[in-house]
Design a protein around this nucleic acid. Structure first.
Length: 476
RNA sequence: CGGGGUGUGGCGCAGCCUGGUUAGCGCACCUGCCUUGGGAGCAGGGGGUCGGAGGUUCGAAUCCUCUCACCCCGACCA
């Protein structure tokens, strides 16, 4: 039905791009690999920011801003870190028409600049913990880019905390991953699996990395958030020590954690359909649209008065779009707001005015319902959270139905080669077996779920003993 | 960087092979009429250095050379 959107069944990847472009979420920029986030897309980002920011504040974090440019010498201080990031960094070599004394890196992430500052700020255990977050842009020179999912420049938040003890740092790392999980499920209506990354998949410079992984509608995995326990690696690289209660000087323990505009891509690929974007109500800046319908001048007067009164009533509690544009017919408007994912549409025509009703349409199910005029406000209040819950539930079912326990390598290979999905399989813990699977199937270990069952088994590749299952899947 | 593809009004394309008046078509846009419960219709109208440079030719969107950009598929990644 949607005019310019490729069906998911015919080309998933084209469908995704069509939704992003047609729903006016983003557009290609003149620079390869970077994108313009248009107002519809940015509104989603603002909702993500607002809600996450509140959750960060509630857990004791504060915001700050560190600069975009990082001296080259900083980048090279932490060995693993530089190895991980150097190839994908943009470097400024000139300024004011002159070659620079020292090259400046455009931040791919801010650990180095932040820890250079923490060194100045941390003297005593009394200065700890430091719980700072920043909302910023970063740049990674990607070879292959896709709108929202992977662009050279992207927006994110990065939390950087400093702690006196390893236990505290670990608790923070887990706490923030849990914030992401809660946010993903309660706001994005996107079920995720929280767990630990394997050694080969962890962040450059981390002791270990945790992630939340979501399943998209094409059954591929998408890493939606990460949280790193950095141990003392950065403290050592930047010589950040504090004097503890016992008078001893010790290196500080660090964490960092982030989510990016990639979440918008995740949101699209979790819920949207062939008619366009489907937004969970809590992510919709404007969750309701009213479309008046009329033919004759006399009908117009009545319908608009009726609709306007309802608009005013609903606006007390929700941001409501009142689409009284004259140049478009109702059918066009329906299609347009569907494409843009507005959760609830209220249609008001002469017959509704006559009967003291309105038509309420849910974007996720496309269900139409006649509602009494007197009941509509309560119905809207009730439907938005209901829709939010049902969208999460639907996504959960999808994830569950496409997750398979597998005990032999051949089945793993044939599932990945076929329809795909998440595969729960035993793994001995060796990087070799992990690499073997990756080479053969392109699937990687997404993470080692926290809530996996303790279950003795045999590694699906080599047969050595394993303590539990990990998730294999192809990933974005 | 390897393989493939595309550059022609805002968008999507045709024209190119076989050079020849004023470069077409659909959508979008503007004006008017008419319409409005699932992307209406009619009439009129505006808008193009044919990605760029060079060459061949009386004449180039079209042929030749070079170049640039973007997209898709692979190697790297949140």
């Amino acid at each position: 039905m949607a005019k310019n959107i490729t069906a998911r069944s015919s080309d998933y990847s084209k469908w995704y791009t069509d939704v992003v472009i047609q729903a006016k979420l983003a557009d290609y920029s003149p620079v390869k690999g970077s994108m313009v986030i248009r107002p519809n897309g940015y509104a989603i980002w603002e909702m993500i920011q607002q809600n996450l920011d509140r959750m960060f504040k509630d857990t004791g974090h504060v915001n700050a801003y560190f600069p975009l440019l990082i001296p080259e010498s900083f980048m090279t201080k932490e060995a693993e870190h530089v190895e991980g990031f150097a190839p994908e960094c943009a470097v400024v070599t000139h300024g004011g028409g002159q070659p620079l004394e020292e090259n400046l890196y455009i931040r791919p992430t801010s650990e180095t600049i932040i820890w250079s500052m923490y060194k100045k700020w941390i003297m005593s255990y009394r200065d700890l913990p430091i719980l700072i977050n920043q909302w910023a842009n970063v740049m990674r020179w990607e070879m292959r880019t896709r709108l929202f999912l992977r662009t050279s420049e992207f927006l994110w938040q990065e939390g950087h905390t400093a702690h006196a003890t390893a236990e505290e740092a670990e608790a923070e790392t887990l706490r923030m991953l849990n914030v992401y999980k809660t946010f993903a499920e309660e706001y994005l209506a996107m079920p995720v699996i929280a767990g630990r990354k394997s050694e080969s998949e962890k962040f450059a410079g981390a002791v270990h990395t945790y992630s939340i992984e979501a399943m998209m509608q094409d059954k591929k995995a998408l890493q939606a958030g990460t949280s790193h326990n950095l141990g003392q690696n950065f403290a050592k690289a930047f010589d950040v020590q504090f004097q503890d209660k016992d008078g001893q000087r010790r290196y500080v323990y660090a964490t960092s954690w982030g989510v990016s505009t990639r979440l918008i891509g995740a949101l699209i690929m979790t819920h949207s359909d062939d008619n366009g974007l489907v937004l969970p109500p809590r992510l919709a800046q404007r969750p309701v649209v009213i479309v008046p319908i009329y033919r004759k001048e006399e009908e117009k007067t009545r319908v608009l008065a009726y609709a306007d009164a309802l608009h005013k009533e609903l606006s007390a509690r929700h941001k409501v779009i009142f689409d009284d544009r004259e140049q478009y017919k109702p059918g066009y408007k329906f299609a347009e707001w569907e494409l843009q994912g507005i959760p609830l549409r209220i249609e008001i025509g002469p017959r509704d005015v006559e009967n003291n009703k309105v038509v309420l349409v849910r974007r996720d199910t496309m269900q139409k319902e006649f509602i009494d005029r007197s009941a509509i406000a309560a119905k809207v209040d009730e439907t938005l959270p209901l829709m939010q819950r049902e969208m999460l539930e639907k996504a959960r079912v999808w994830q569950k139905e496409n997750t398979f326990n597998v005990d032999d390598y051949d089945s793993l290979k044939s599932i990945i080669a076929g329809d795909g999905g998440f595969i729960n399989a035993h793994w001995c813990g060796s990087a070799d077996c992990e690499a073997t699977v990756k080479e053969a199937t392109k699937a990687t270990i997404r993470n080692i779920p926290f809530d996996r069952e303790e279950e003795k088994g045999a590694c699906v590749v080599c047969g050595k003993p394993s303590d539990g299952r990990v998730i294999f899947a192809k990933a974005y």
